[in-house]
Structures are given as C-alpha cells and as structure tokens.
Simulated assay, not measured.
Amino acid sequence: MATYALPRALAALALAGSVATATVAPAAAAPRVAPRHADHSATQQALDAITDGGTPGALARADRAGEVWHGTSGVADLRTGRPRLPHDRFRIGSLTKPFIATVVLQLAAEPRYGLSIDDTVEGWLPGLVRGNDNDGRRITLRQLLQHTSGLYDYIRDEGFRARFTGKAFFTHRYDGAAPEELVRIGLAHKPEFAPGEGWSYSNTNYILAGMVIEKATGNSYASEVERRIIRPLGLRGTTVPGTSSSVPGPHGRHYSKLYVADPAARIHDATDFNPSVSGASGEMISTSRDLNVFIRALLRGELLPPAQQKQMFTGRDLGDGRSYGLGIRSQTLKACGVKVWGHSSDITGSLTRTAATADGRHVMTINRNGDWGDQALEQSAIEAEFCG
C-alpha cells in the first residue's frame, strides 16, 4: 500500500507512552473530578449530567492545540466502585465504520486491487445480494459506505433481536454469527428504497464492506485494519476482537438494560459477549486516546490520498445541518456554527461519540459505560467542548 508520512506532532501523539493532562486520574475514593482548566468546565458538567442521569460512568478526552484534557465522572465498576480511568478500553460499536471505510478507500487508491467504489456489490460478491427485490447488481460500494443502498438493517430484524436482546442475551451472548448469516437476515426483508434513492443507516452495508475487503485482499478485514491503520498510528489500545468475548484490560464494566424499553428495567453486566454479531459494522474495541489519534489522522489526510479523501468527506445532506460521507458524518453545531466530523455508536453496554473540527486540531471522544438514557447528553457535551 502507499504510505503517508505522519507529521511530527501527530507522530508524537501516536507514539507517546503518556501525555501531560489537564487533570489527574481520580483516586478510587473520588470518582468525580473537576477539571483544572476552566476551558473544559462546561464539558465536565456535561459528563456529570450523564452520570446524574443514571449511567454508571463517563469519560472524555479532548486534544486541542497541544493540550490534552481528560474528564471522568462516576464509576467503571458498580461492584468495586473503581472510577473510570483515562486509558480504559471500551467497545466502540459503529465507530468501527470509519476504519472499514478507510480501508476500502485505500484499496481503491491502489491499482493492484482493481477496486473502485463505484463497482457493484455483485462484481465482488457474485450472487450474494439477491432476493426480496434486493439486487447487488444495482448497488455500488459507494452506496454501502454511505448508507444509500436501501438494504435493510439486520439488527432491526425481530428474530435477531429475540436472540440477542432481553433475557435471551444470557443464553446467546457467546453464539456469535458469520457475516453470511447476518447478510441473509438483512436480505430476508425488502429494501427500504431503490439503491441511491434515499438514505437509511444499515449495519448490513458494512458487513458487506468487510466481505469485499476480504475478497479483494485475500486477508481478513481485521488484519487489513491492523496493518493499514492500527499499527502505523500506534493505536496500542485498539483491537479487532473477532469472536473473542472479552475486553482487554484495563477496562470498566459494560452495563446494559438489554434494550428493554421499561425505564425501571434492571441493569446487567454485559461486558462479555461474542462481538461477531456486529462484525465489520461494529466489533472493535479502543480507547479515547486512540480514537482521537485516528480521527485526527483521517481528517488531516494522513491515511488517504487526495482523491479518496475528497470522496470520503463528500457528505449526503441529511438536513438540520447534518451530512453523511463514507463512514463518517458531519454536523454543524447550532450553538456556535462550528462544523464537526466524526461518528457515534451504540453497542451493548457502551455508547461512544467522537467529534473533531475539519482541520483535526480539536478532537474529543466521549464514552459512557451504559447503553440507556438520554443520548442528547452526548450532544450537550460536544456543544460544551466545541462552543464553550
């Protein structure tokens, strides 16, 4: 693959074993820590609002103009009371998608693979996407990456949810699923619209994108993500776990109400499960530091040549100041008009959001170790950080 030199400041961020922070990691007896820098006081208050709302713990990291700020609130473990720590690992769910989209675009930039994002799915995975008015001959790779394929999201399938949510989670948490199985679940439904004629977020798209990576390279998408992104950027806390059910340490526990609608539903420790049910659409594990390094490198053009960079960040207008590019979304913040790029995620036991200015100079990742509650609180934290 083509290589792109990391600028000195980025390389230092990627390779440093530790970075001076604006706060000191909290002691076990004091899970809520106020920031020392007033610039981030509103962001800290937004974190506290998340835990005040019932989430066990929240953490954030912001990188801006050479300053690194960590904020934490609440606990990582309800049993021991251990606080959340800046270097905790957590499941990042759909923040896997920018990694996958980046690899597909890198392959498109390398002539030896003969891949274009305007190729059809049929051309790479012949005969796979057929039935119920689904037709891979009419769907392009670009449409997969931008969620304009019309393919039904397998996660919404009632049979899938019956296995992996509610009480059934405890019976099936280690089952996992092959990508072909997940695609079949999606294809059991008619498409939401004809390819290119609408926008609908669908995890089925990225399961297929992962399969295309494997067909083009002869390697697993995990190995390509590791070779092309994780190792070059020094993302030591980032893994593509495959069928491994555990989260490498250090990590907090991941708590879930198992998507039961009742606000009074019991909270369960759902840290361990086989993430292959999310596959290339959302199986990865990372840290706030690593996500900031990755998104910053992506925005600065360190991972893609100019043509593919332009394609990735050409967004489909979703209204209300929002757009979706190829595996990455943008939003113009109403409080101040700043445009940020990033992604959000929701996976069992973990909610994460990463946002950054277009030049990559200001980037923040926020994570909560619970999958319920008002997700507008993450938006409040983003507004506080970038508009405060």
Rank of each mutant, 00 (worst) to 15 (best):
A2I: 12
R8M: 12
A14S: 13
A20C: 00
V24T: 12
H37Q: 14
L47G: 04
A49W: 01
I50T: 07
D52N: 15
A58F: 04
G71R: 06
S73T: 09
V75T: 14
R84D: 11
L85M: 15
P86A: 15
I92L: 12
S94Q: 07
L95G: 01
K97Y: 01
F99E: 02
F99S: 03
I100Y: 02
T102R: 06
L115M: 10
S116N: 03
D135Q: 02
Q143I: 13
Y152K: 11
R161V: 13
A177D: 06
P179C: 13
F193I: 14
S200Y: 07
Y201P: 05
G234S: 13
L235R: 11
G237K: 04
G237H: 04
S244Y: 05
S246Y: 11
I267L: 13
A270C: 12
A270E: 08
S281T: 08
N292G: 08
V293H: 06
L303F: 01
P306R: 14
F313K: 08
D320H: 12
K334I: 14
A335H: 07
V338A: 14
V340S: 08
G342H: 03
H343W: 02
S344H: 11
S345D: 03
G370T: 07
W372S: 10
A376E: 10
A381M: 10
F386V: 10
